[in-house]
Computed example of a mutant assay.
Amino acid sequence: MIIVPTTQCQPGMRIGKAILSEQGRVMIGYGVELTQFMIRKLVLMGLDFLYIEDRETDDITIEESIHEETRALLRIVLSKIFSKFSATSSLHGSSNTAEISTLLFEGITRVIEDMRKGRHNLVSLTTLNMVPATTLEQHFCQNAIHVCVYATKLGMLHGYSQKELTELGLGALLHDVGNIQLPAKLLLSRTKLTASEFVEIQKHTELGFHMLKEDMGIPLLTAICALQHHERINGSGYPHNLQGTQIHEYARWIGMLDSYDAMTHPRAYRNSIAPHYALEILYANAGTLFDIKKVTEFRNKVAIFPVGQGVKLSTGELGVVCRHNTHIPSRPVVRVLTNERGEKIKSPFEIDLSSSLHVMIDLI
């Protein structure tokens, strides 16, 4: 199986993994043959990549960070939170906080269990074949799950205890919960925010803190993550212009990861950027906006080119990432499938980019 940019897919290719809506419903099932109409539709929907069946890569196993059942449970509880607390909900929804709290702890416990069973000691990108968020609720759920996955895995690799992983995971999952009490038109605006609109947006940190502290029955540190995730170590963040270690360690992780996720996923007002460029931006701001030790740890542990990802090399050859080098995750092993003229190679071969330093990945 190979991960292919949707714009490069051809009619007749078969789906290697079901395409899901943001709600987790199957839109196109496994093994379905793509048509030109389907490809155009998926491009218009903003789906950047597809899992495609491929004989030359059928031995490559693409391992998800968490099980789909776990992801579905997180979507359920996040939807309940949105329904109960959003600015447009009536009588604050029908779910009680005890039910929501129980589901939150169950969800985070499953995330931790899934990741402990994973084979790789790397932070992997989240699901690629999912329709991008278009509504405030979809954006809230998608961003929450992405940041939760990154943060929990990094916390695990960092050596946090079960209790600490639960606190960090919940903080990551709920870091932007205050946004759901803001007007959707403000958060989904396609134009640059005015000064007064930006002040309004900034209120989501304190709104989230009070929601979590007073209503949700979860650890105080989770609420502090919601309050502090936009603080920056040079004091330029908000709401309290905290500096350095005045910002809780969990919030420093989450602030960095939230920024990375924002850059690598499209927003109403801009397109996404490639993961390796986003990582460069994080590193350029390490020591000023972000904790340099945490950026370095993320850089050393994130698999920015996931197994199965189709890539173009600086040699002009096309291939697929077949495995990671845990000591240099940004330099994977690539199975070369076509030559520089785009012709299929009769005997595909593998190139280890950790030892072939003159070869670069030019294009995802």
Rank of each mutant, 00 (worst) to 15 (best):
L257W: 00
G255I: 10
R267F: 08
I281W: 00
A262L: 10
G255K: 05
I281F: 01
A278M: 11
L282K: 00
A274Y: 07
A251G: 06
L257K: 02
I273T: 11
A284N: 05
A274F: 07
L257H: 01
Y277D: 12
R267Y: 07
I254S: 01
P275W: 06
I273S: 04
A251L: 08
A284D: 05
H265G: 01
M256Q: 03
Y283A: 07
I273P: 02
Y277E: 13
P266L: 10
P266C: 09
R252Q: 07
S259F: 12
A251K: 08
R252K: 13
I281G: 00
G255A: 10
L282V: 06
Y260S: 07
P275N: 08
Y269L: 08
R267N: 07
M263A: 13
A284Q: 05
R267Q: 14
L282Y: 01
Y260W: 14
A251P: 03
Y269P: 01
Y260H: 13
E280D: 12
A278T: 12
A278H: 08
D258H: 08
H276Q: 06
D258I: 05
P275Y: 05
I281N: 02
R270Q: 14
A262Q: 09
T264V: 15
D258R: 04
A268M: 14
Y283V: 00
A262R: 09
A278G: 14
R267M: 13
E280H: 05
A284F: 00
A278K: 06
E280P: 00
L282S: 00
A268F: 13
R252H: 07
A278D: 06
D258L: 03
A274Q: 13
S259T: 14
Y260F: 15
G255Q: 05
I254C: 02
M256K: 02
E280C: 04
D261M: 09
H276S: 06
T264E: 04
L257C: 03
Y260Q: 10
D258Q: 09
Y260N: 09
H265V: 04
T264L: 07
G255E: 03
D261K: 10
D258F: 02
P275Q: 08
G255S: 09
W253Y: 15
R267D: 06
N271F: 07
D258G: 05
N271S: 13
I273M: 15
M256S: 01
A268K: 14
L282A: 01
L282W: 02
A274E: 15
P275V: 08
D261V: 11
H265D: 00
L257I: 12
Y269C: 11
P266E: 11
D258W: 02
E280S: 09
H276G: 00
H265K: 10
A278N: 09
A251Q: 05
L282F: 01
R267G: 05
W253T: 15
L257A: 01
